[in-house]
């Protein structure tokens, strides 16, 4: 029991980190809270499904194309919509939230609810991890999650675009001064954030079904992780994923399945009330600037 809680808690934490990392990255760079995050996640799953089952593409190619597509849609979201309401938080929230809702309801209209649609796992196999059976897909999730987070770290610390991202996240004024175009960066950040949502979708969805309902859940999980960790803090995402991940597994084991969501919702509320900047966030200091 203890061993399986440890192992499944870790898996769950990495799942959470995967769902949240895109949201966090976008917010960190462009200060856009992408409330369409969950919808893009579901869309990526559906796109992969169409490409694979309907167009008969190679599975890996289908997954890859789905990610690229969603990344482009994310970038377009900024380039053609959000750019017009930049700096007006009310409008930004309404636009991303309403677009997300529209997208999810459209997908629901096409029958994307319940257990109608699913993606196959990369391989049907079960492994034994110190006596606990874990299916192959979950192991893949852990590996991909860790690799992705490491890759992101390298990207933001060693590539030109990544460094520009960090520059603009730290000080937009100064970044503009050295010739970094904030709109271009924001477009890229939404594209990248959406791509990360899509990657999360294509590796996580084989564990369940592609359903519109999960859009809201994913959004809530992503928000919970980012809020608890501190928006825009990469280290926060990891720590918060572990905290919420284990809390979810424990409460589900002892109280029942509904508590997975309740834990996430409570994490958001409790953090926002007692420490709005989260565990690692600097946001509060920034907001105080008078």
């Amino acid at each position: 029991m203890l061993r399986s809680i440890l192992i499944y808690g870790l898996i769950n934490s990495i799942i959470l980190a995967l769902t949240a990392i895109g949201f966090s990255l976008t917010y960190g760079i462009s200060r856009v809270a992408n409330f369409a995050h969950g919808a893009l996640y579901v869309l990526a799953g559906f796109a992969a499904w169409v490409l694979f089952y309907r167009l008969g593409l190679n599975y890996y190619l289908a997954l890859f194309l789905a990610v690229v597509m969603v990344a482009l849609i994310g970038a377009a979201l900024y380039r053609f919509a959000l750019i017009r309401v930049r700096g007006m938080p009310i409008s930004e929230i309404i636009v991303t939230f309403a677009l997300g809702t529209a997208l999810l309801e459209l997908l629901r209209f096409f029958g994307l609810f319940g257990s109608n649609y699913g993606l196959p796992p990369l391989r049907r196999a079960t492994l034994q991890l110190s006596g606990v059976p874990v299916d192959f897909q979950r192991v893949a999730v852990v590996v991909i999650g860790v690799v992705l987070i490491a890759a992101l770290w390298l990207f933001t610390h060693y590539t030109k675009v990544g460094l520009a991202f960090r520059a603009i996240a730290q000080d937009e004024q100064a970044a503009m001064m050295v010739g970094i175009d904030p709109d271009r960066m924001a477009t890229l950040s939404l594209g990248l954030g959406s791509a990360l949502a899509a990657i999360a979708a294509v590796v996580l969805l084989p564990l369940g079904y592609i359903a519109a309902e999960s859009g809201t859940n994913i959004l809530v999980y992503a928000i919970a992780v980012c809020i608890l960790g501190g928006l825009e803090s990469p280290a926060g995402v990891i720590v918060a994923s572990l905290l919420i991940g284990y809390a979810q597994i424990l409460s589900v084991a002892y109280f029942g399945p509904h508590y997975q969501m309740i834990v996430a919702l409570l994490a958001i509320l409790v953090t926002l009330v007692f420490r709005p900047s989260g565990l690692f966030g600097r946001q509060k200091e920034l907001e105080e600037r008078v």
Partner: peptide, 9 residues
């Protein structure tokens, strides 16, 4: 929802 987005924009 789309109407809302269009109006806000």
């Amino acid at each position: 929802s789309l109407l809302l987005v269009a109006l806000v924009l």
